[in-house]
Design a protein around this nucleic acid. Structure first.
Length: 590
DNA sequence: CTAGGGTTAG
């Protein structure tokens, strides 16, 4: 009798486990209620996890209802529910349930899975304090030996931007495996410790920690790190590692490679990877289109977009952002407006978002149609954000439109989103038309409001290691040689007709008094000088910069590319400048 | 009162 009952339960459970459709589960629910089999803890557990975790789309309300009707939920039942909340829109509920569970079972420690799922709830809801509480409970429950749990804990500190704590937890993990390493790498990546992330990758490759080896995820993270640093050599090394160890093939990894190569200014390599992919999705196409856009291949980006449509792949919002930015970067005004109109008509199944408007504002600004750009911003159905205004401000700066510039910055101030860079743009607008009294006025205002500029930072990669420079850098070990080289370069360039422009571009507020004689060295100049110093003649110099390159440095790079016969590639905040023989690929006005 | 947990694309 008992045996037959168990076998009928088994049958039922296998039925539950195999169902993913909501309707199906509802029918099963009805049967379970009618037969009272729902009371069976085992059956209930399987039913709940199916309903709460496997159902797509998820139905958290239904799950919550089912769960709350259970009179004596076990720890497993609660865990399932906490886990369901951790991936729901209301993760706070999961944390609440965790606390209720612990109160109820005060005599015995909860099982480590409860803490794990509750941690995920805190991570999702950004509840750092709740996470800290759980950390305390992990200690008091004696779960510090649970490597998986500690890995989740690291992720908590990672999302709370506390990479030092994440490191501490990492050191305490008794058995570190590839995933723990990956979480630390992803932590460094999220917290702008990109070089540390690459350092860890190297350590893993060299098998510093026993037999822990990089896997596909490690490589994906490393490629992302290279992408944000613009470290092409390192990226190629990681790519080679992927091929050698047969870790490639996954769609997300290939997509990341495409993006990395294009963000490192190597469109050939990006296309090579793209072409070799057996399967491509929207993300692949978007990566390719955005890459082409960034590198100034506007026509090719449009071609790629049309081909994607032809293949029946529907674009996403980011695809359109890439396409429209391609049009603006390459000065394809008519094409850009045409795509924008099609977008607005609803042809692509979406409405223009802020990024799309931003691209068009940029497009119109570059085409010197400032009034039209301003009109468009005012006609937007959503509230323009600071980026939109900032784009417009950039256009004002290029065209020396003081009036509109002032109006735009008042919008930014109204949004309480004005940044130091915005004041600099306005400052440069004033100085470009010679309004010096306004410049002085604005400067004292900035001093008064204690507005500090973000330091420019440039990076250059040499033999796989990345060297970073800030304005007037004095930290680099070879600073003497670098400054000597820079002085020599300046002399050479002067002969060729280069004149440093010290009046209209003032990134550094405090440099006014020094301006003229000893001029400030922007980080990109230092990086370029370093490149000239340490690489053999003819080597391409690749520099990555966090801000927008100023007119003077842009000019400087042009001359260097000619006088020293080098290809210089600068990655700006949003795009690439390829300098060769005294010219730049960009069609900006300078 | 066993089951069940951690990282990852544009």
């Amino acid at each position: 009798m008992l045996k037959s009952m168990r076998s009928s339960n088994d049958h039922l459970i296998s039925l539950i486990v195999s169902s993913t459709a909501k309707l199906h589960l509802r029918q099963i629910h009805a049967i379970l209620l009618r037969t009272s089999l729902i009371r069976n803890s085992d059956v209930f557990h399987h039913f709940l996890s199916r309903l709460a975790l496997s159902l797509v789309p998820r139905d958290i309300d239904y799950s919550r209802r089912v769960f709350s009707r259970r009179s004596n939920p076990t720890v497993s039942h609660c865990n399932t529910m906490i886990r369901a909340f951790s991936v729901s829109e209301t993760p706070v509920e999961g944390f609440r349930l965790f606390r209720a569970l612990r109160r109820r079972r005060s005599s015995r420690p909860a099982n480590p899975l409860s803490s794990s799922f509750a941690l995920k709830c805190c991570i999702k809801s950004g509840d750092f304090l709740g996470g800290l509480q759980i950390h305390g409970k992990i200690i008091s429950d004696g779960f510090l030996s649970d490597s998986l749990l500690l890995t989740t804990l690291m992720d908590l500190y990672s999302t709370c931007e506390n990479s030092n704590y994440a490191c501490k937890v990492f050191d305490e993990i008794p058995k570190r495996d590839t995933v723990s390493w990956n979480v630390l790498i992803s932590c460094f990546l999220r917290n702008k410790r990109t070089r540390d992330a690459l350092f860890l990758f190297d350590k893993m490759v060299n098998e510093v920690d026993g037999c822990v080896k990089p896997d596909g995820v490690t490589c994906l993270l490393a490629v992302q790190a290279c992408s944000s640093l613009g470290a092409l050599d390192f990226g190629e090394r990681v790519h080679a590692f992927i091929d050698q160890n047969k870790l490639g093939g996954a769609l997300n990894l290939s997509n990341t490679l495409v993006s990395m190569y294009s963000r490192c200014g190597s469109m050939d390599k990006a296309y090579e990877v793209f072409k070799s992919m057996r399967e491509k999705n929207v993300v692949s196409w978007t990566a390719m289109i955005s890459g082409l856009a960034m590198n100034g291949f506007g026509k090719e980006a449009i071609e790629a977009f049309n081909k994607m449509l032809k293949l029946g792949i529907s674009p996403e919002e980011q695809t359109l952002t890439g396409l429209l930015s391609a049009c603006s970067h390459s000065g394809l005004v008519d094409e850009g407006m045409m795509f924008f109109d099609r977008l607005r008509s609803g042809e692509f199944g979406m409405k223009p978002n802020l990024h799309h408007y931003g691209c068009i504002v940029d497009l119109l600004g570059r085409a010197r149609l400032l009034d039209r750009a301003y009109g468009l911003v005012q006609s937007m159905e959503m509230k323009p954000d600071s980026t939109i205004w900032r784009t417009l401000l950039g256009a004002c700066r290029v065209q020396g439109n003081v009036e509109l510039g002032e109006r735009v910055i008042s919008h930014l101030i109204e949004l309480k989103a004005e940044e130091a860079g915005d004041y600099i743009l306005l400052l440069n607008t004033y100085s470009s038309v010679g309004k010096w009294e306004k410049v002085t006025e604005l400067r004292s205002l900035m001093k008064e409001r204690k507005i500090h500029t973000k330091p420019g930072c440039s990076a250059i990669e040499l033999q796989g290691s990345v060297h970073e420079f800030i304005v007037d850098d004095v930290l680099h070990p070879r600073k003497e040689e670098i400054y000597e080289t820079l002085a020599e370069i300046n002399q050479q360039l002067k002969i060729a007709g280069y004149a440093a422009e010290t009046t209209s571009e003032l990134h550094n507020l405090d440099s006014e008094e020094e301006k003229g004689n000893a001029l400030t060295y922007h980080s990109e100049k230092l990086a370029i000088a370093f490149g000239i110093l340490v690489t053999p003649p003819g080597t391409t110099i690749r520099v990555t910069k966090n801000l927008r390159t100023c007119v003077d440095c842009h000019n400087f790079a042009k001359f260097v590319s000619n006088v020293y016969d080098r290809v210089v590639i600068i990655r700006d905040r949003s795009r690439f400048h390829h300098f060769k023989g005294g010219f730049c690929s960009c069609n900006d006005f300078w």
